[in-house]
């Protein structure tokens, strides 16, 4: 069964709104003349719940065609996000060059059609450029090779 896009979207938005609304109860609402820290978040999240319900009932656009995912999209998503997270994980322990080499190699798998040699040469290039721009040109306080290596 293909779930209609706006049905799912509306539920997701209403749930996010409800969660924020519940969490924001801990902040004081204040009075009209002295608005508290909770006023804005509570109003906005309540609005989000209403909008989510509204989206739920809006018919899908003609070209939306339900919620569909293709493998190439999921693949691009997973490898791209993973490469960014790898930089955050590896930058301190491994250093700029190993971190960017590994992250670029992982990101290259977002594309299916490439030889291993292409992927490796790409990763070497990206690591070199990253070191040149961020460490030498911008002078970021990062090691080329970390302590763990």
């Amino acid at each position: 069964m293909i779930l209609r896009q706006n049905r799912l979207a509306g539920m997701v938005i209403a749930c996010i709104g409800a969660a924020v609304l519940l969490y924001a109860q801990r902040y004081g609402f204040g009075t009209v003349a002295r608005i508290g820290p909770g006023f804005f978040p509570q109003m906005l999240s309540a609005l989000l719940v209403l909008l989510g319900i509204l989206v739920f009932f809006v018919p899908d656009a003609e070209d939306a065609g339900g919620v569909t995912l293709s493998w190439s999209e999921v693949r691009a998503f997973v490898f791209s996000i993973a490469s960014v997270i790898l930089i955050a994980l590896l930058i301190r322990p491994a250093g700029v060059i190993p971190a960017s080499f590994i992250a670029a190699l992982v990101a290259s798998f977002a594309h299916r059609d490439a030889t291993l040699l292409q992927r490796l040469s790409l990763s070497v290039t990206v690591a070199t450029i990253a070191a040149a721009i961020f460490v030498y040109a911008l002078g970021m306080n990062l090691r080329l090779f970390g302590r763990l290596l």
Binding site: S80, R92, S100, A107, A110, T125
Partner: peptide, 23 residues
Amino acid sequence: RLYLFPAIMIFIAFGALSASMNP
């Protein structure tokens, strides 16, 4: 695109890092 997009990803990660030096 194979060459372009991984490079952009690395650039994004370093860019975010450079703003605050906070992973």
